[in-house]
């Protein structure tokens, strides 16, 4: 009788330990997925700031901007201001929209540069293109990883057993994907010195 009692108590303790471990590990997985979103969000913000700083710095080193090129560059600055405003309101959709506007203005600026042979011949133009490719590549990567983190989190809280933990710990579905226009996600196809293609 005594032995049976010990077995029952032992089994109950074991069940509690297993349940506790499952609950803790489920909670930790949710926290990790949530933090991954924050990390990737911070990465996008860092890259956007880096893009603006780099473009401004390089634009100042390029002499001979024509009026329409100057207009595109001002559009980039305006988009940056729109981004700052959306950022202060924690408005992800607004930030993505401002990012989109900046990308479009940048594409237009590059296209305008292509039409300006005087500017195209300068060394600063080559540097500008390399810097733009680099930062757009990094930004494109940051957007992709942010959206992947959102997707992973949403799948986790909608699938079993994650949905139980999500309800238990009050985790909600994240809808704020970084939605930008199709063209804005592309790294500009800057080709020079090309003999192929």
């Amino acid at each position: 009788m005594k032995k049976t009692g010990l077995i029952i108590i032992g089994s109950i303790v074991l069940v509690f330990v297993i349940m506790g471990t499952i609950l803790i590990s489920g909670y930790n997985r949710l926290i990790e997925a949530d933090e991954q979103i924050n990390l990737q969000y911070a990465q996008i913000d860092y890259r956007l700031q880096q893009r603006y700083d780099t473009l401004t710095q390089l634009a100042n080193s390029i002499n001979g901007f024509q009026a329409h090129e100057q207009a595109y560059f001002e559009a980039i600055t305006q988009a940056r201001e729109a981004y700052a405003s959306a950022f202060s309101n924690n408005d992800i959709a607004g930030m993505a929209e401002a990012d989109n506007l900046q990308s479009i203005a940048l594409s237009n600026l590059i296209a305008a540069f292509e039409q300006n042979p005087e500017l195209k011949a300068t060394e600063a133009y080559g540097d500008y293109n390399d810097a733009v490719w680099g930062i757009e590549s990094a930004l494109s990567d940051a957007r992709r990883l942010y959206n992947e983190a959102i997707n992973e989190y949403n799948l986790l809280i909608r699938k079993f057993p994650g949905l139980i933990y999500a309800k238990m710990y009050d985790f909600e579905q994240e809808d704020d994907y970084w939605k930008v226009g199709e063209n804005a996600t592309d790294v500009p196809d800057i080709v020079f010195g090309s003999t192929g293609n």
Partner: peptide
């Protein structure tokens, strides 16, 4: 890596 780099063609 955070995706910063360069692409060129020849």
């Amino acid at each position: 890596s955070g995706g910063m780099g360069l692409r060129r063609r020849k």
